[in-house]
Amino acid sequence: MLGAGVFAVFAPAAAAAGSGLLFALVLAAAIAYCNAVASAQLAAAHPTSGGTYIYGRERLGHWWGFIAGWGFVIGKTASCAAMALTFAAYAAPGFERPAAALAVAGLAAVNYIGITRTAALTRVLLAVVLAVLVFFGIAAFPAASGDGHQWLPHGPLGVLQAAGLIFFAFAGYARIATLGEEVRDPARTIPRAILLALPVAATIYAAVGLAVLLVLGPQQLATSTAPLAEALAAAGHGALTPVVRVGAAAASLGALLALIAGIARTSLAMARHGDLPRYLAAVHPRFRVPHRAELVLAAIVIVLVLVTDLRGVIGFSSFGVLVYYAIANASAFTQPAGERRWPRWLNIAGFAGCLVLACTLPTTSVLAGLAVFAVGLVIRVLRTQR
């Protein structure tokens, strides 16, 4: 969850909600909690690779599982390209495309040689990001001011749009649930990991969001391309902005590393059931990873970063993830009493919240998301008829 979103998501959220992005952050965190308990409960009952693709397929039917898996794979593949380009923009300005391609190839190689290597590198990147965010808070908060704030410039709709965009930054716990076959005691470990990680990430987001909002104000924040760096400069620490660049680069790499792992495992599950080419269902005999899925994914993302710029896909990715979690909540709602750990009303709240946020995203994001799902459904209809 502590990926590039914390360095990028507050600007579009401020454009939608002004200072109301703080309300949006609370709303996004509340819906994320509902989704997290649904994912944790389902992961305990279905400890296998695939996440909500498997949960939807087992609890609701094959078509619902396909919708969840398709939205996750397509939306997050675009996010992979966005994260790689974001890393390169901070780490190698002027050489963004080749640097992004090298980053994808390097992280795919780490994933290829086993999930323990992925976890070890994730710890290193997370330590760097946390250190940078703590440094940012210490440097920026003394310059905070409450002047010039517009709380709800676009009314409640603006808050809902901002919450949908901020939700993009919470989406990392979905990838925990996709790793069910590679975790010791997944029925215990995955729920525990999800529910420990979420409040920590939410607290950090709240502190960073409050700092950039109070230092820059909603108008300047809304137009910022590097909010944390600009906040440091406004606080009189412009010479220290390279520290933020290091943190943003590490966060982008961390997000990209987890994305590659999560998409490959969902692709593995879909290939096993014939919803993607069965060639992708192979598991490496030594490293025990879906190596073909990871190599194909890396190749696609490298092509994307070399030919297009997908750094504006936050809204599109949020739409796909919100649909994914709506299906997770609906799946958790069907679980019998013996599998339940939390009350059903949380599933209802999570389902309704996901749909509301998805429908109130910017129109272009909604239309792009609907088009992607329509293409996937047409492909599955044709494959089913064959």
Rank of each mutant, 00 (worst) to 15 (best):
P186D: 06
V321C: 08
L346Y: 01
F319P: 00
L196Y: 10
G172C: 06
L152K: 10
I263K: 06
W70I: 09
L240E: 13
P93F: 11
Y205H: 09
V215M: 03
H62E: 13
G146R: 07
L306K: 03
F287N: 06
I348C: 08
A349P: 00
I260C: 09
L322V: 07
P227H: 14
R340G: 04
R184C: 06
L130Q: 02
L370W: 01
M1K: 00
E58D: 12
M1P: 06
A162Y: 04
S79L: 13
V323I: 15
A171S: 15
P93Y: 10
A101P: 05
L240V: 08
V246I: 15
V375A: 15
L240N: 09
I300H: 10
P142V: 02
A207M: 13
V9H: 08
V313H: 06
V26K: 01
A30C: 12
L121C: 12
G146Q: 10
V244S: 07
T266I: 08
Q220I: 06
P98K: 07
A131H: 08
V313R: 06
Q219V: 15
R184W: 05
S317P: 00
V129T: 15
L240P: 11
A89S: 15
T116L: 06
Y55D: 02
W345T: 12
V283E: 12
A44W: 09
A44G: 12
G320M: 13
G148P: 00
L133P: 11
W151Q: 10
A231I: 09
G338S: 15
A202R: 08
F316E: 02
L179Q: 07
G137M: 12
L346N: 00
A78L: 15
R386W: 02
R341Q: 13
F167K: 04
E230G: 00
A144Y: 07
L126M: 13
P12D: 09
